[in-house]
Design a protein around this nucleic acid. Structure first.
Lengths: 215, 215
DNA sequence: CCTACCGATCGGTAGG
DNA sequence: CCTACCGATCGGTAGG
């Protein structure tokens, strides 16, 4: 069978593609989606520029694939753990804690990919901007749905507004990322965890908050 | 007097310098501090690249001057109005509202200069990063001092923590900027104003919040 | 996936 | 402030 004689299988290509994208997401959190250059990425991977063009036809196609890869990482490290938590209030705490863990784990050297991508691409019309915007909209929708579930279960005061709560928790997340990037360390994530609990009306264990930073 | 025969006075040079920097800050909110190129800036000003090098010896010197100029704009539009407000709680509301006005006024096309600069330069060691970091630290200190004053005046519950409150208000500000950049409009600043008031325990006038967006 | 190349643009300099 | 230039790097292509 002729189709089996190829030296590189489709699976090999897929594996290479994933390896390229993972490195590209890492570099993009340091240099931005525009600052990410094909030459730099090729050097980091020990391959040639034209090798990258064989996988992605243009820089824009690479950027779109990088956004999807970053979305997969975010889903695996932040969203999936939250969905697995107890519905309602439990998911609201879990999604924030999972985000802080995502930072502390340093999967990506420059902190949250999307926090940076929103500000970098937000003013540049095009497919890249729309892809980033759609991911952020999905995330805010998820926060709102967790908040609505918590309200249904009467785990929050009846006059709470899911839209407002989602906005504020997103703010705590962005402030935590900014602090993480500037301090170049997990210092100060304790205050983010305390802020999350205060906003949700949960007891903020002062002893635990103090140790979070040193973990 | 030989010193008076020069055709261009020092004041002329200073005026040119300010014109360069104002345009540079605007461009930097669209392309970032690294994406800001000497060639682009020279074209936008109708002058030559070497004309810019006469004012700033290197790109890093230009970036540092741009940060100072952006700091001046932020002080004039956000910090000074807040300091002029009634001490304590009044200043906390005023600084957030002044920030939202700063966005709505569209002084800078890409939203808040520092929100972007923190994420772009936070992972690039050097003088530029330190300058941006110092400005953000000063701003957080200002928020903390307003919060401490409000506590002293018993305008906030006695168990409030100025550090925590400053962190959360900074988060609301960052979330408002992200929403502004993505929506490319002032839509949605109403929820930021409502969030500010809710956090500070103030009555959030629903009618007023609804009209804020349409103003 | 490679080498070898394209025109455009980058930050920066020489000399005026 | 200008023209004219430098080497390096940009995104992308030809041809294999």
């Amino acid at each position: 069978m002729a189709t089996n004689r190829q030296r590189k299988t489709r699976a090999d290509g897929e594996r290479t593609r994933r390896a390229i994208l993972h490195e590209a997401v890492r570099l993009a959190t340091l240099d931005g989606l525009e600052g990410l250059s094909i030459g730099n990425l090729a050097d980091a991977l020990g391959m040639s520029k034209s090798g990258l063009y064989a996988h992605f036809g243009s820089k824009e196609e690479l950027q779109l694939a990088v956004i999807d890869e970053a979305g997969g990482i975010f889903r695996a490290e932040v969203i999936d753990p939250a969905i697995a938590a107890p519905p309602g209030l439990g998911q609201l705490v879990a999604v924030c804690d999972a985000f802080f863990d995502h930072l502390k784990r340093r999967t990506l050297p420059g902190g949250c990919f999307f926090a940076g991508a929103i500000l970098e691409m937000g003013t540049r019309p095009g497919r890249v901007r729309e892809r980033v915007s759609a991911f952020q909209a999905d995330f805010l929708r998820l926060l709102r749905s967790f908040a609505a579930a918590a309200l249904d279960r009467e785990e929050l005061p009846a006059d709470e507004d899911p839209e407002l709560l989602a906005f504020e928790l997103n703010g705590i997340i962005l402030a935590a990322n900014a602090r993480f990037v500037l301090s170049d360390g997990a210092d100060g994530l304790g205050v983010a965890r305390t802020a999350t609990r205060r906003r949700l009306g949960l007891a903020s264990d002062a002893r635990a908050a103090a140790t979070w930073d040193s973990v």
